[in-house]
Design a protein around this nucleic acid. Structure first.
Length: 636
RNA sequence: GCCGACGUAGCUCAACGGAAGAGCAGCUGAUUUGUAAUCAGCAGGUUGGGGGUUCGAUUCCCUUCGUCGGCUCCA
């Protein structure tokens, strides 16, 4: 018998008889370990039952890797489908992949099920887990596979088989009386799916296309043990507590009203945060050499025809008529900025011109996609357009990237970067697109920034770099974006006079850093769980007199803080200290100053912080200077 | 937009064919209070809007508006 050499993760080389399965190999090495899920053979995910046929490098996959969690949950989705098939024999199977933090499976039920049925399905799943069905891989020819699923009356599976590439190895996975078309790999048996929960039921189009039939998607999550599952469910609870829609109401930051779906109302507390964010923005942009403009919300149809929005963006725009002429509410700020640029002559010496605008835009989004402040129909972009010479593109893009980093760092956000290329509906030539895309790529590489390429996701006028911030739920939100545009200058016939005295075409970058102010506010609410750092907190300090006898002194403390520019309140209600403190805690006010007779005598304040608790008596002046520093330095 | 669920007092939630209720918040009064809720009283609603079935609808049906969960991370 032939022997093959297997190289392990630790570098050790071991010889085994050809055809040894990974499972044998593993058992031979350690006492059986039920943490092992699958195996990587030369980097490729394989079942444990896979025989080893040639010399290869292998590593073991456990749940604590993302590959492992994926395989684990993919098996969980098969257990789900197995259970559903048992309970509803007529059901047609869609697809059932693992996703971030869980899995789903799409079904076409003869009669729609309701979320009340999930419990019943979970019960059946538990049985299947208990039955410990071995999971067996079978490879078959295209014809066999087609025949098999045809007999089983699984039209969606047939469609999947048809869509598979010519050379694909077609495989099925079998567990007990259930068999599914699947690339695998899977766990060795169903008994390993120890802890799971079905978390939701929703409609989902087959292949995500609204022209296709609507299937019912069952969501779930799964873990190797109860503790991990419970921990995950607790995290979901925590995320619920931080939901910006809930905190937005409780902290009186903003509201959404039936009268304006997708058009948020900002209340005073929300506006304070907004103002701080825009003040910070203006300061940093002035420092970075930006100007600021403001352009109208409603502009004539001819402008939108010229910009290309009329052809490319109309379904997302709102319209109105003025004196019998067509006007549109702006969905983007760029055309306005183009008009400002064109309002005077430019020399090459004037460039680059960095023109910023906190511009309110309106876009019609599908009603079902609206979500708090995250997804709205009216929002404020911290926009800027940079008009420049062609050879300034690289340095300007680099400058914007540095500015982005400065902002995101202040909030303590992690972010990732994506480069989006030519979409199907695009203006301009291939050459222009290729040139623009390669410039962006070069800058990113020079800055040594890791990025992913997002094929076909660019704007219709040029490629872009997107910055995604991560929120407390681990969801990522696109905030910053840098878009190169060789189109607008052409459309608007923008020019500058070059050294040679002739007219030339400038290049334009569109960019936002916060993205949308509304979305940023939502993100910050969830990021900080409503407990804003002092520089953003709507109320920074609350003065709490113990009894009426201290009202005068409390008033003096309040006046002092007020005059020093802090956002301060005084709670002179006829309530006990504990009551006032509780209320201040619930409002997440960073600092509480308790003022009683002791403090009045010593001329001090009793300081309490919302997280650190009672900090004892303090000199008012030193508290003020500490807080000043905390606010100025934007300490998180 | 589509699928599903939901909509009762400012908020959180009961009641579910047979007089719409609680807690918190609000208001009034008492209490002068020392680090997360003092006590008592009062007020608060055409049960999202419209239509229908019924002797009677918050409850059942239709419609409309809104909200929430989803709508490829591809076998």
């Amino acid at each position: 018998m032939q022997h093959i050499k297997v190289k392990l993760e630790n570098g050790e080389e071991v010889a085994y008889p050809e055809g040894t399965t990974c499972m044998d190999l593993y058992k031979g090495m350690k006492a059986s370990n039920n943490k092992l899920l699958a195996i990587l053979v030369d980097g490729k995910e394989c079942d444990l039952s896979q025989p080893l046929l040639e010399n290869s490098k292998i590593s073991f996959v456990e749940f604590d890797s993302s590959v492992g969690a994926h395989i684990f949950r993919h098996t969980a989705s098969h257990v789900l489908a197995h259970a559903v098939k048992r309970l509803y024999p007529d059901v047609k199977l869609g697809i059932g992949p693992a996703i971030e933090n869980g899995f789903y499976y799409d079904f076409d039920f003869a009669e729609p099920i309701s979320s009340d049925d999930l419990g019943k399905i979970e019960k059946e799943m538990k049985k299947i887990v208990k039955e410990r069905h071995p999971i067996i891989r079978r490879e078959l020819s295209r014809e066999e596979a087609f025949q098999f699923f045809k007999e089983r009356n699984e039209p969606y599976k047939l469609e999947l088989i048809e869509d598979l590439p010519e050379d694909a190895v077609i495989s099925c996975y079998e567990q007990g009386d259930f068999i599914d078309l699947c690339a695998g790999p899977h766990l060795p048996h169903t008994g390993m799916v120890k802890a799971f929960k079905l978390t939701g039921l929703a409609g989902a189009y087959w292949h995500g296309d609204e022209k296709n039939p609507m299937l019912q998607r069952i969501y779930g999550t799964a873990f190797p043990n109860r503790e991990q599952l419970d921990h995950h469910l607790q995290m979901l609870e925590e995320a619920k507590k931080r939901d910006h829609r809930k905190l937005g109401r409780e902290l009186d930051l903003f509201s959404l009203q039936e009268e304006g779906p997708g058009f948020p109302f900002l209340h005073n507390n929300g506006m304070i945060i907004w103002q701080e964010l825009t003040d910070f923005w203006r300061m940093e942009h002035r420092r970075a050499g930006y100007e600021e403009i403001r352009t109208p919300l409603i502009l004539n149809r001819t402008l939108w025809e010229q910009s290309g929005h009329w052809d490319h963006f109309r379904e997302n725009m709102y319209f109105t008529k003025i004196d019998d002429q067509d006007y549109a509410v702006k969905p983007m700020n760029c055309p306005g900025a183009m008009l400002v640029y064109r309002s005077k002559m430019h020399s090459y010496r004037d460039l680059p011109r960095r023109i910023g605008e906190m511009g309110i835009v309106h876009r019609h989004e599908l009603s079902g996609t609206l979500h708090g402040l995250m997804r709205v129909r009216s929002f404020t972009q911290d926009d800027a357009h940079i008009f420049m010479l062609p050879d300034q593109v690289e340095s300007e893009v680099a400058g914007v990237i540095e500015l982005m980093d400065r902002f995101y760092r202040v909030f303590g956000f992690k972010y990732s970067v994506e480069l989006s290329t030519r979409p199907e509906k695009a203006m301009g030539t291939r050459e222009m697109w290729d040139r623009a895309t390669s410039i962006l790529e070069t800058v990113l590489k020079e800055k040594i920034i890791d990025f992913q390429i997002n094929e076909g996701d660019g704007a219709f006028y040029g490629p872009k770099i997107d910055f995604h911030l991560e929120d407390c739920l681990g969801r990522s939100w696109q905030c910053g974006t840098i878009q190169l545009d060789f189109q607008m200058p052409e459309k608007f016939d923008l020019t500058y006079v070059g050294e040679d005295g002739a007219k030339h075409r400038p290049v334009v970058i569109h960019r936002v850093i916060y993205g949308s102010m509304e979305r940023l506010l939502a993100l910050l609410i969830e990021h900080y769980g409503g407990a804003f750092p002092a520089w953003l907190a709507p109320v920074q300090v609350i003065v709490i007199p113990v009894t009426e006898r201290s009202h005068d002194y409390a008033g003096q403390v309040y006046d002092k803080l007020m005059m020093d520019g802090f956002r301060v309140q005084v709670d002179q209600r006829n309530e006990k200290v504990g009551y006032k403190i509780r209320e201040a805690q619930v409002k997440k006010i960073p600092y509480m100053l308790v003022i009683g007779e002791k403090e009045e005598e010593s001329g001090e304040v009793a300081l309490r912080h919302r997280e650190r608790g009672d900090l004892g008596p303090q000199n008012l002046a030193s508290f003020i200077s500490d807080l000043k520093r905390e606010v100025e330095e934007k300490i998180i």
